[in-house]
Design a protein around this nucleic acid. Structure first.
Length: 492
RNA sequence: CGGGGUGUAGCGCAGUCCGGUUAGCGUACCUGGUUUGGGACCAGGGGGUCGAAGGUUCGAAUCCUUCCUCCCCGACCA
């Protein structure tokens, strides 16, 4: 493993890029903007998926799968929707290649032009609502609660591993309801599921809110979001949930007979989180030595490294280690025993730090003599000697639990520290330039002001927070009256 | 998509300006031996379409043209 992870202080951006690669999470592919998610990175994503999937099913949703391709005409059925996505769509125009006449490679066969071009889905509302039309007849078919795990493509101009890639993996929930209220409850409920997941599993506190009209999902009446704070003081949108009103129902003619036999349009929601969460996880907790993973999402929670001279010692240590591993397994912990002969343990220590294994246990001859082990925890990098006895597995399980809490607490403290409020435009700009973070400030509610602040400061309104009391004030830019503070930040 | 930079072994680099043995170094990897409490040592070994395609030339990593990747800035980003 080569050295030389840049520090966050030196170059936060380079630190992130290098960390993603050096920790074996992902790498660039030959295709612009597309990433290869490597096994270690994918293992983390799979843990996220597994937990989210449980939570979706607990809230009554079922998984299904819809096609990658969307007929071009579908996209334009909802006017705002097509406008929002048109500029970043990959389009399939042909269905066949043929040999080049010069005998060098293949070319697109001009005779194999598609009658109707296909869009590679940037999101699946249209193709899904086209099915919903046939799935919904009466109020008895509602609510329709569907989720799909899929990949989508958005032709982004500037990409970064996990944070913004041309193709990414995600889940998209799509639901249809009999009443407006029920759909609104669903959208908020799923935002709550996201917040719970991100906080409890990713150990990352979030800010819940609604987007301003200009930041709203194309085709939605309301967009709810969770925003997280990264270590460089920039915000990252971690998940969104949309109340779609009857927009897609009308665009795709999805009606149901209510109890009185009256024909009504259904009400919709959609919600999603993506592999961008990986980016959030990495940026929020990691340090200059590498990844710091919350134990709940670490592919392997405990690594045991023997330190030994000769086969006899190794054998004795392995016996102790195997017993310990069996006990760890009983506690529901995942472990790895790394007895590779590597001449010096130092680089192994560094490697596991780089990859964010929560707990590292070293067992050497001294430990055998004393009946101890040395335990290092990744979050604080503290090392401590523990007695090797029946209590140890429980102590390790406790440590794991403590680490999950500690990583959250640290992130929570940071988020608090990075949250300020400003009452004048000068203070506002000063705060953004000196510390960044979330800045609560009054806004007059107009898109013009929002845009001007964005142009002048590069800060956007991340959300209108859900948990924020009404407060009389005046807009930091225009001085016009405002009834509530909104949250500004520079963002990814 | 515009401006700037970049690409040589898994990784990090030299060589390119000024064309000329068989493309080199560090590290990683493989074999044998000695070896392990924060990045071992000795000896031997394998690994390259020099980002890609054209062109100039007796001869191209090196010169010319086009294209591509990645990085930075900008525009864009439900």
């Amino acid at each position: 493993m080569s050295k030389g992870l840049p520090t966050r202080e030196e170059d936060y951006s380079a630190w992130y890029n290098e960390l993603v690669k050096k920790a074996d999470l992902a790498e660039n592919s030959a295709v612009r903007g597309c990433m290869v998610i490597k096994p270690y990175g994918f293992a983390i994503w799979e843990k996220m998926q597994a937990q989210l999937d449980i939570m979706f099913k607990e809230t009554g949703h079922q998984n299904a799968y819809f096609p990658l391709f969307i007929p071009k005409s579908y996209l334009s059925k909802e006017a705002d929707h097509v406008e929002g996505f048109a500029k970043e769509c990959a389009v399939v125009t042909h269905y066949r290649l043929k040999n080049d006449e010069n005998g060098k490679g293949v070319i697109v066969d001009p005779e194999a032009k598609l009658e109707e071009e296909l869009i590679v889905r940037p999101t699946s509302e249209t193709v899904i609502w086209n099915s919903f039309k046939n799935w919904v007849q009466s109020y008895r078919d509602l609510p329709l609660l569907i989720n799909q795990w899929a990949n989508v493509v958005r032709w982004e101009m500037r990409t970064r591993l996990f944070l913004r890639t041309a193709e990414f993996l995600w889940q998209e929930g799509h639901t249809a309801h009999a009443t407006r209220q029920e759909a609104e409850i669903e959208a908020e409920k799923m935002l709550g599921v996201y917040a719970e997941f991100v906080e409890q599993y990713m150990a990352l506190p979030v800010l819940k809110g609604v987007k301003t009209p200009s930041e709203r999902f194309a085709g939605a009446l309301e967009t709810y979001c969770i925003e997280a704070m990264m270590q460089d003081g920039k915000a990252l949108q971690a998940g969104t949930s949309h109340f779609l009103g009857q927009n897609f129902a009308k665009a795709f003619d999805v009606k149901f007979s209510d109890k009185e036999g009256k024909l009504e349009y259904v009400w919709g929601t959609s919600w999603g989180v993506s592999t961008r969460l990986m980016g959030a996880l990495i940026m929020a907790h990691s340090d200059d030595k590498g990844l710091v993973l919350p134990p709940n999402l670490a592919p392997t929670q405990v690594v045991i490294v023997p330190i030994y001279k000769g086969d006899e010692q190794l054998e004795a240590i392995s016996k102790v280690a195997n017993d310990l591993c069996a006990d760890l397994k009983k506690k529901g912990l995942t472990w790895k025993y790394d007895d590779r002969n590597t001449h010096k343990p130092g680089w192994k220590f560094a490697e596991y730090e780089l990859k964010g294994y929560p707990i590292r246990i070293a067992i050497g001859p001294k430990d055998l003599e004393n009946g101890t082990v040395e335990i290092a925890r990744r979050d604080t990098l503290e090392k401590q000697t523990y007695t090797l006895d029946d209590e140890l597995p429980q102590k390790i399980a406790d440590l794991i639990e403590d680490m999950q809490k500690n990583i959250y607490a640290k992130a929570h403290k940071f988020k608090s520290e990075m949250t300020s409020s400003a009452d004048s435009y000068d203070d506002f700009k000063e705060l953004l330039d000196t510390k960044g973070g979330f800045v609560y400030a009054h806004w007059d509610g107009t898109a013009e002001t929002e845009e001007r602040i964005k142009e002048e400061t590069k800060a956007t309104i991340r959300c209108i927070p859900l948990e924020n009391p009404q407060e009389e004030g005046s807009c930091i830019l225009t001085g016009k009256p405002s009834t509530q503070r909104v949250v500004f930040a520079r963002a990814y």
